[in-house]
Design a protein around this nucleic acid. Structure first.
Lengths: 221, 221
DNA sequence: AAGTGGTCTAGACCACGTA
DNA sequence: ACGTGGTCTAGACCACTTC
């Protein structure tokens, strides 16, 4: 256990036990360095973790206090679908349903559109509608994506600077219901993800799952 | 712009432009301090941000390299429902539908169960099923929760150390459909949240939204 | 105006894990 | 074995913002 971990845990204990009540000021950095007999950098490292978690607010000149939280922040990690399925102990398989290069309009090069099905133990698990910007990722045109999904290639070869993920629910339309082996109007959990490299929009994915077999879990930071 | 921000942005640019290709080693800390004419601490601060983002991997003795990512991590922030609705420019209103103190079994104190409806411009937006552990939060029993939802009180008065959030889709049953003014079997986006203080399970919330009017958005870290 | 947190430096020692 | 990243220290200066 590192020194800053020890200090952070002691601070956490004080918050939990009410020694540092919500809304109350906590000691200044100098007092904490003396009390914990640690350097300022180490004390600040412990504090900054708590600030990230939203447990402590700090303002210059006004000191630090235990935060009155107004929102819950947590960390969401969406793994490769193959890993997700294998981690659950199921057999992963994959089928490419459609592949189409859209003709570019004017000076713009085209888009690569893919429809893929990911299965767990042979049962449909995720329907993936994928669009890849061939302008930015011309190498994608050479990939068959017949044996493995496009995300396997993307995530390994392409760095991304910004990812926007939206999670929504939708009712299955007739086509989707048939592909996913659910009834029409059954609920789906839909994850939509836009990936950017700088300003360039690399790829967009729409991932539909039967609600029965999938949910997204996050843990506090 | 802080020095460590400048250094991080230059590193990002090199990754994006392929000067530091995916999988390749990047210079050691000492070389970077010389090149950027900054102290080791500042260089490490820039690097550690990129490590958090999953863009760079570091291993002792083996050096640092641009990561081959295997998952996308992002930050999910779920605000108070009132703020969420007001931020969208709608009028927020609230109704307490049920309130019940469950008798404790044996030595355990009871649970407080609440059913609440949150509305945007008078239209149902979120149905909240809430359970509060009166063992740990006896003060909750004194709160009427008639004018404002329990989360307003919880989030302001109670610190939490661990929050597990699950996001799923479900079909509306008859009761829920009526309350939320949707058709039976319509898709709902359901957020379930368990909040802990140390080992104590403080509260559990099941938040159901008509899929049409709600989605969860996250951005990369 | 002054005290707080924020940033940066220079240097030391440590521990891990690869070469 | 030894070079790398990881941790910690002591101190300086800065900037914000409240007193």
């Amino acid at each position: 256990m590192k020194r800053h971990d020890e200090i952070r845990e002691e601070m956490l204990r004080r918050i939990n036990d009410g020694e540092w009540p919500v809304g109350a000021d906590i000691p200044h950095e100098f007092e904490l360095t003396e009390e914990f007999n640690a350097s300022r950098g180490t004390v600040r490292r412990a504090l900054s973790t708590l600030v990230e978690q939203g447990l402590i607010e700090r303002r210059k000149r006004a000191g630090s206090r235990v935060a009155r939280r107004t929102s819950q922040t947590s960390k969401l990690s969406i793994p490769l679908i193959r890993e997700e399925i294998e981690n659950r102990g199921h057999d992963y398989s994959y089928r490419l349903l459609e592949r189409e290069v859209m003709a570019g309009t004017g000076a713009r090069a085209g888009l690569l559109r893919l429809t893929c099905l990911h299965l767990a133990d042979g049962r449909p698990f995720q329907l993936e509608h994928r669009t890849i910007n061939l302008d930015v990722l011309p190498g994608a045109a050479d990939q068959p994506f017949r044996a493995a999904g496009p995300n396997e290639w993307l995530v390994r070869e392409v760095p991304a600077t910004r990812v926007i993920t939206r999670i929504s629910a939708a009712a299955a339309d007739a086509d989707t219901a048939e592909i996913l082996s659910v009834a029409e109007r059954d609920p789906l959990l839909v994850v939509t993800r836009d990936t950017f490299l700088g300003d360039a929009h690399l790829t967009e994915a729409r991932l539909s799952h039967p609600a029965r077999s999938y949910e997204v879990t996050t843990v506090s930071i």
